Simulated scan of single mutants.
Amino acid sequence: MLQFNINYFGLTILLFFTEVLIALFVHDAFIRPYIGDVLVVILMYCFCKSFANLPVLPVALFVLSVAFLIEILQGFNIVAKIGLEKSKLANVVLGNSFSWIDFLTYIVGFLIIIAMENRLAKKVR
């Protein structure tokens, strides 16, 4: 079950730096709010698959559930409730603004994961 996968880890690093670059340098109304949210689901998936040799669907569903949970917590203003509203890190990691459209972006990320993993599985066969 626990097994390091260099390929997923490499993708994790690449996606992480992409997210950092988006956060630092992209201040638009499309890439940062939407593409960034799509990529964060893929980033979390790749991170999980870097260390756990588990089937695609359970990991993808777990990551989607975590993304949904974080978005719901944003709706309850969790960062302020736990006293971390002045923490830049907490605001970046947990977020501080709820949006219904984010659920759709997370689902798009989930679907990209499933599609890419299915494509890779067919290529291997």
Rank of each mutant, 00 (worst) to 15 (best):
115 A>Y: 02
104 L>V: 15
50 S>W: 09
84 L>K: 09
4 F>C: 13
42 I>P: 03
108 V>A: 09
67 A>W: 06
51 F>K: 04
94 L>P: 06
105 T>L: 03
69 L>R: 01
74 Q>C: 02
27 H>P: 01
76 F>I: 12
54 L>P: 00
107 I>L: 15
31 I>P: 06
21 L>F: 09
29 A>T: 13
22 I>W: 10
12 T>I: 13
76 F>M: 14
100 W>E: 04
81 K>S: 13
113 I>S: 02
1 M>I: 10
125 R>E: 14
125 R>L: 11
82 I>C: 10
32 R>G: 06
124 V>G: 04
87 S>Q: 08
116 M>A: 10
66 V>I: 15
83 G>I: 05
64 L>N: 07
30 F>H: 09
12 T>G: 07
1 M>R: 08
40 V>S: 10
75 G>N: 04
1 M>H: 10
29 A>G: 11
117 E>M: 07
91 N>Q: 14
108 V>G: 02
106 Y>D: 05
109 G>M: 00
52 A>N: 03
70 I>K: 07
100 W>F: 10
102 D>L: 05
125 R>D: 12
29 A>C: 07
32 R>S: 12
62 F>A: 13
90 A>Y: 00
52 A>R: 08
27 H>I: 04
54 L>Q: 12
121 A>E: 03
88 K>Y: 15
66 V>N: 08
